[in-house]
């Protein structure tokens, strides 16, 4: 008797959890958005996250438009690791951008292999994607520490306006004599704040991709019959890439 009830419950639970395509006219493939609810939830989440990042970037934009003078990014972001003292404007950040875009491509490849149920292919491309993410984070860490070493803080900017509006840099030894920020402090504040917030997203993305990799290697998705989880995490990862494209434009190019 008890077993029967359990069986019944099992059946009901199973029915409950296989809902979208069995009981719903508009569930599954025929749904309004043409995507399973997991994927549509991820899309909608990214939409809302896009609003968050727009809010942040607009905070930066409104302040930048309001300011009289802004340091020239070509003179601020001009150093490269291993090329000490050499002047390479925008060199390093272009490498960072390339790394992140390539890592995004690798994840696309993982998703495509997922559609063919090619477990090994998914794993390999995921590993490449994760390496790309970690490399990007490493680059960002190097860039941050370089700026911090030269005296930049979220509330302190060593790049100030010369007499003709050219960008000058306060020497490290002089910093002690200038308690107030010599240049517009929001240049540093918005840079650290927004690239930091983006970096947090990258970190989360790397963690998600690692979870996907572990589950791929364990065969969880293979048993499930589809690699939709890789696709969902992938969407998130591309979104991180998408945000970076705009951060790159607004902080480094313009």
């Amino acid at each position: 008797m008890a077993e029967e009830i359990i069986e019944q419950e099992q059946e009901q639970v199973a029915q409950h959890f296989s809902l979208p395509d069995t009981n719903n006219e508009e569930g599954g493939e025929h749904s309004f958005l043409g995507a399973s609810f997991g994927k549509s939830m991820m899309w909608l989440f990214l939409l809302s996250d896009a609003f968050t990042f727009t809010g942040l970037l607009l905070g930066y934009g409104a302040i930048r438009v309001k300011s009289e003078w802004w340091p020239d990014p070509n003179l601020v972001f001009n150093s490269m690791p291993f090329l000490h003292g050499k002047d390479v404007p925008l060199g390093f950040v272009t490498i960072m951008t390339t790394i992140l875009i390539l890592s995004s491509v690798f994840i696309v490849r993982a998703v495509q292999e997922g559609h063919r149920m090619n477990r090994k292919g998914v794993a390999i491309w995921l590993i490449w994607g994760i390496i790309g993410g970690l490399a990007f984070l490493g680059c960002q860490a190097w860039e941050w520490s370089h700026l911090i070493h030269s005296g930049m803080r979220p509330f302190y900017n060593v790049y100030y306006a010369g007499a003709d509006g050219q960008t000058l840099k306060l020497a490290a030894a002089e910093i002690a004599n200038h308690p107030a920020s010599p240049g517009p402090s929001m240049f540093a504040g918005s840079f650290f704040g927004i690239t930091g917030f983006h970096g947090l997203h990258v970190t989360i993305g790397v963690i998600l991709n690692t979870v996907a990799l572990i589950q791929t290697l364990l065969g969880t998705y293979h048993k499930r019959g589809h690699y939709e989880m890789v696709e969902k995490f992938g969407l998130y990862w591309h979104f991180v890439d998408l945000v970076w494209v705009f951060v790159f434009l607004f902080f480094y190019l313009i």
């Binding site: 995507a35 994840i107 969407l235 591309h238 890439d241 998408l242």
Partner: peptide
Amino acid sequence: ATLLKAFYIIAEFMHLQYEKRTL
């Protein structure tokens, strides 16, 4: 140019141009 890049990331990488029009 950045908007163009954004378009390719969304349309191709995020696969949106192959999704249903309602999405």
